[in-house]
Computed example of a mutant assay.
Amino acid sequence: MSTAGRRWIRRLARCGPLLPLGATGLLVLKGLHPGLPGLSCPLRALTGIPCPTCYLTRATAASLVGRFDDAVVLHAFGPVVAAGLVVWSLAALRTGRLVPRVLRGRHLVLVGVLLLLYWAGRMGLTYGIGLQAFPLS
């Protein structure tokens, strides 16, 4: 690798811990101004079927600005993800590490399984029973 490449990687490593803070700040801004543009779910755009994380960004943004009722209607994991982002931001700033030492692969697998179970329940309610489990927007 070239010297310029190594320098760029060192700079990125120093700035890495600011990533969670930037993401949290962006979501706070989105929570304060919901009309700001954002990215939509490609799966839902192509098929009309929401993915396991559909509405999670809006729910997290609403949670970060204290609108927990709106957040839970959008996605039950919104307040949990908001709390996790705040903790991650503080830990990254304190330790200077982007990825906390306590985070293991099994934690990510557990979160993935919980998201899939929640999504399967919402899909079953919406498409199986006919109850509206996803927001209309």
Rank of each mutant, 00 (worst) to 15 (best):
G48E: 08
A45T: 08
V73E: 08
G31I: 00
G128R: 08
W8T: 13
G128M: 09
V87S: 11
L46I: 07
T57F: 06
P34Y: 01
S63F: 10
Y55K: 07
C15K: 06
A13T: 10
V86G: 05
L32I: 06
L114N: 10
S137K: 00
L93F: 09
A82F: 09
L21E: 04
G112D: 07
Q132C: 00
P50T: 03
L114E: 05
W88C: 02
L21I: 09
V80K: 01
T53C: 13
L27P: 04
S89C: 09
M1E: 11
A45R: 09
C51G: 12
Q132L: 07
D70L: 04
A59S: 15
L125F: 04
L125G: 12
P34Q: 01
H33C: 06
A92Y: 07
C54P: 07
R97N: 11
C54M: 14
A120D: 05
F77S: 14
L56N: 08
M1N: 10
D70S: 08
G5N: 07
T60E: 04
G130F: 06
A62T: 02
V72K: 03
L64A: 12
L21Q: 14
L131T: 04
G84P: 07
L85P: 03
P135E: 02
I9K: 15
A91P: 00
T47Y: 13
V109M: 11
D69W: 02
V81R: 06
I129Y: 07
W8E: 12
R44A: 14
A62P: 04
G38L: 08
W119Q: 06
C15S: 15
K30L: 14
L108M: 12
R11E: 13
I9F: 13
L39D: 06
A92G: 00
P100W: 01
L117S: 14
G112L: 11
I9P: 01
A82N: 08
G25H: 04
P20Y: 03
G38M: 09
F68Y: 12
Q132I: 05
C54L: 09
W8C: 09
G84W: 06
T3L: 08
C54N: 13
G78A: 07
A120V: 05
A59Q: 04
T60L: 05
H33F: 15
L32M: 14
V86W: 03
A91C: 09
A91H: 11
L43S: 12
A62G: 00
M123Q: 02
R94L: 08
H75L: 12
F134S: 01
V65E: 05
T24L: 15
G121L: 14
G35T: 02
L19R: 06
S137E: 13
F77V: 02
T57L: 11
G124P: 04
G35N: 00
V113I: 15
L103K: 11
D69F: 01
P100A: 08
S89E: 06
T53F: 11
C54W: 03
G25E: 04
L43K: 11
R6V: 08
H107R: 00
R94E: 05
T53Y: 03
